[in-house]
Computed example of a mutant assay.
Amino acid sequence: MIAVLMGGNSAERAISLRSGEAIYQTLSNQNIDCFTFDWYGDNLSELWKQEFDQVFIILHGRGGEDGYIQKQLEDRGICYTGSDSNSSHNSMDKARTKIIWKQHDLTLAPSIIANIHRPINPISFPLPWVVKPTLEGSSIGISKVDNQIQLNDALMLAWQYAPYALIEQWIKGDEYTVAILGDKALPVVKIITDQNFYDYESKYHSNKTQYLCPCDLSPTQEKELQDIALKAFFAINAKGWGRVDFIINQHNKPYLLEINTVPGMTSHSLVPIAAKAIGINFNKLVTSIINEI
């Protein structure tokens, strides 16, 4: 019996519910015994009363993607999809992720951490900047800063979600993502949006966002991006499945943005798009993720 664990109490709750329902439907259609469990953040005791032996974690954001729920399942000896509690914790924290990636000589934009309780260190890299909460996904709380005057408002927005914010040099370029299934990188997807960047509206609501797969990279460039994605994925000790996001600047240099260890699985989501490009339909994708447990 598989429990599809969805919902959560993060800012990405609505997306998790959509992803979870899609997974539940595809499992049910394949006559796989399963049920959904909507975790509100304080009702785990109700889950433990259920009978199940595996969990498909489709909780996005804090609580579900930061190692908390993984640790709860580990403590009870219950198998689950995706990365373990430690790697989930490291990958959810954008600042911690950058430290690990830097240790592996991966290419990153210059950045500093801004603590709400301390003065901000001088910023040595040029404008524009991007300001993001260190502990949110789906581009929630992110702002582009074109001049120093805008910085305070951007930090106030980011600090609504976490006491730490990442101030990063804005890299002008095209956005790409690489989905990973097991130990293989799926085809690269290029994201084209009419917004400043691939924000929450572009991800989940806009009909103008375009996803190119095959993308516009040469085979050599695509292989390079896939190789970097795998190196980044395994540097965090991630496993099972995930997604690594990039910006490629005007000089064709790729910069790592972030890693997602529980990516979305909605109709707009990138992992299903990449899988479909090589003949893996949604049903097969879901069962493949379960088989990686």
Rank of each mutant, 00 (worst) to 15 (best):
P214V: 10
L27Y: 09
P119F: 13
P187T: 02
R13Y: 02
T36K: 14
N260R: 06
S267F: 05
S139D: 01
K172E: 14
F37G: 01
L59G: 01
A95T: 08
C34H: 02
A238C: 15
N196A: 12
E292F: 08
V244F: 07
N121R: 08
G173F: 05
K208C: 08
S85H: 14
N281P: 05
T36P: 10
Q103I: 06
C79H: 10
A22P: 03
E224A: 13
Y198K: 01
K144M: 12
I289C: 07
Y200Q: 04
S124E: 09
P122N: 15
E136F: 10
D227F: 01
A162Y: 15
S206L: 03
I289Q: 02
K144R: 15
I192N: 15
Q221T: 09
C79S: 14
K71T: 12
Q25V: 09
A11G: 15
N283C: 06
A154L: 02
D66R: 08
I273L: 15
G77H: 03
K144T: 13
T220M: 11
E46A: 11
P254D: 13
S85D: 11
D93V: 08
D245T: 00
E136T: 12
K284G: 03
V271D: 02
Y200W: 05
I278T: 05
G64H: 07
T209D: 09
E46G: 08
N115L: 03
S88M: 08
Y176I: 14
D66K: 08
Y198I: 03
E136K: 09
A229V: 01
T287A: 00
S85A: 15
V244A: 09
N115W: 07
W241D: 01
K49F: 03
K284T: 11
T134M: 06
S267T: 12
S87D: 01
I120Y: 09
R13H: 12
W170K: 07
I228K: 06
A3G: 04
Y68E: 13
D75A: 14
V55F: 00
N291L: 11
N147M: 04
V178T: 03
G8M: 05
K71L: 15
Q103W: 06
I167F: 04
C34R: 05
S269P: 13
L157R: 07
V130K: 02
I58Y: 00
V286F: 00
Q50Y: 00
N196T: 11
C34T: 10
Y40C: 11
